[in-house]
Design a protein around this nucleic acid. Structure first.
Lengths: 225, 225
DNA sequence: GGTGCCTTGTGAAACGCTGCACATGGTTGC
DNA sequence: GCAACCATGTGCAGCGTTTCACAAGGCACC
């Protein structure tokens, strides 16, 4: 037994593995055969100790005194992330965002081919985008079954997002990526991730605001007891 | 006034404030005047105690025995997030994603008007999108100064992302939202947030993979050394 | 074959976040 | 004005993540 996960991989580590993967990909393209945790961490924008601990959750794939073999580490990360196979993606909503996502080459090249597009606008149904026919919302369940959809992407206004999420779940999709600015409710066994563009801007706004306040008056007082 | 930051607001709380804001916005539109932490938490998809603790960092704006006044709490959250004013946004890269972002009504309606578009494709320069003229990359610094740009959005392929980030920083932009799948380096006083679509998919892939492994119970084809 | 150098892998401390449980304090009804 | 009620605000314990510091282990050179 080799690649059995001795310890569960922490969420924080999982969210960084794709970054390491991309960095290693670039290193591979530049001809590097080995890399130290320090160099890898630098390229990934993290602490070297963190990088080592992250990688240690996959197993002991480093060579002390030398570093990590790029090819082998890359394989192990891909294996851990489940990127040794393709995961067909269905996008609901072929508006500006849906089109941008469908066109995004990074999806297909990283193993997430967009194989189905769904929309409820009669004018769009039947037309093609990037070689994929746009189908009506009613076909969703059929498409999921026929194309073995692994991940559903919600790229519609928030008003219909919960209904679409319900449809996806009902059709058997257990991984959903939601771009609608709404809080969705799904069963526990369905993995839902949220990308909220307005939230990101508001967080930036907060820090900018705070920075100004810091400059205005640094107040060490207060009634914290 | 006198709204001194008693305690620094934790990052985790900051990232949830925009959610509360959106929920309160909806409550306001439905005519609710007060809301309990339990109801608010339910709508925001979090624990009630967490919601109370989050809000307590802004100050004691609740009424014991009653709940929170929607209007007032909304004002306080907006104030904390710096949303009492508009933050002009510049988007670099008017490809599919850049257009989608420029068209996204959620930006302007939440106080982030897209006032400038920049691209390096000569065919696009001079044309308009959503009423904003597309200008060459060389005009970036001028636009930042003239329009008092608060936030720069990078929506170009990763190969040019660092260069554009450098240009933005040099022009005085201190808040950057990056959609390019690359690790960017900026000075400490610049706030950088990363939205990486492929990373999100890979995290979903990991969880799906893990679920399957649980089902398989044993992994065939493991490689030991 | 031995010595010294180099990098990994990890124990442990520090830090931040979460969630429970309850004291606090304001409101309502009489 | 008083008592019962109710939701907030928070002390505290538990948990996950980060970071340091160092022992363990492999390689290269002589």
């Amino acid at each position: 037994m080799a690649s059995k996960p001795r310890r569960p991989i922490p969420d924080a580590t999982v969210s960084r593995l794709p970054i390491y993967q991309r960095v290693l990909d670039e290193l591979q393209n530049t001809g590097s055969t080995t890399v130290s945790s320090e160099d890898l961490a630098e390229l990934a924008g993290v602490n070297a100790a963190k990088a080592r601990k992250d990688l240690s959750f996959l197993g002991s794939y480093g060579i002390r005194g030398v570093g990590y073999e790029v090819d082998y580490l890359l394989f192990q990360i891909r294996h851990a992330l489940g990127l040794t196979q393709q995961w067909p993606v269905l996008i609901v909503g072929v508006g500006n965002l849906g089109r941008a996502l469908a066109d995004y080459a990074g999806f297909t090249s990283r193993g997430f081919p967009v194989v189905a597009l769904v929309d409820d606008d009669p004018a769009k149904i039947g037309t093609e985008h990037v070689g994929v026919e746009i189908r009506p919302l009613a076909d969703l369940a059929d498409l999921v079954r026929e194309l073995d959809i692994a991940i559903g992407v919600i790229a519609i206004p928030s008003s219909g997002a919960q209904r679409v999420a319900d449809l996806l779940v009902e059709a058997g999709v257990s991984s959903i990526l939601n771009f609608a600015p709404a809080v969705l409710t799904v069963p526990d066994d369905v993995h839902l991730r949220q990308v909220d563009l307005a939230v990101e801007l508001q967080i930036l706004s907060f820090h900018r605001q705070r920075g100004r306040r810091d400059v205005e008056a640094r107040d060490p007082g207060g009634r914290s007891g």
